[in-house]
């Protein structure tokens, strides 16, 4: 099962400069575990204490996962995940 993950400029030092990487997982949490095995240090930038970091926005097929099931959001083959840094005081 392959899921395309789009990486923001600020985190591309973990992906050898790649704008998008591929990963696997039934949930967002599992996907981040899978990415960590190839891109060491990335998970730490996204997850804090088992939950999404406050200043990180994650979108599943462009939909904000905070309105879905957060880090437990279920994924399906062919989904697209976009990671974006949120600026302090953004619209949350």
């Amino acid at each position: 099962m392959a899921i395309e993950v789009r990486i923001p400029t600020i985190l591309r030092n973990y992906t050898d400069g790649q704008k998008a990487v591929s990963g696997e997982g039934d949930t967002l949490s599992a996907l981040f575990e899978d990415l960590e095995s190839r891109h060491t240090g990335l998970r730490e930038r996204l997850v804090d204490d088992g939950d999404l970091r406050r200043f990180v926005n994650v979108y599943l097929n462009d939909e904000d996962v905070r309105f879905l099931d957060g880090i437990g959001t279920k994924l399906t083959d062919g989904d697209s995940v976009t990671i974006l840094p949120a600026v302090a005081g953004g619209m949350h």
């Binding site: 400029t9 462009d62 904000d64 309105f67 879905l68 600026v87 302090a88 953004g90 619209m91």
Partner: peptide, 30 residues
């Protein structure tokens, strides 16, 4: 990213009218 650089002062701006509880969900469209 280029426009984000131009806009970063705008990004922190939340209109006073905004009430997240009205929304069911939100899409971010490139």
């Amino acid at each position: 990213d280029l426009v984000y650089g131009l806009r970063n002062l705008d990004e922190g701006f939340v209109p006073e009218l905004y009430d997240e509880s009205v929304l069911t969900t939100r899409f971010s469209v490139g």
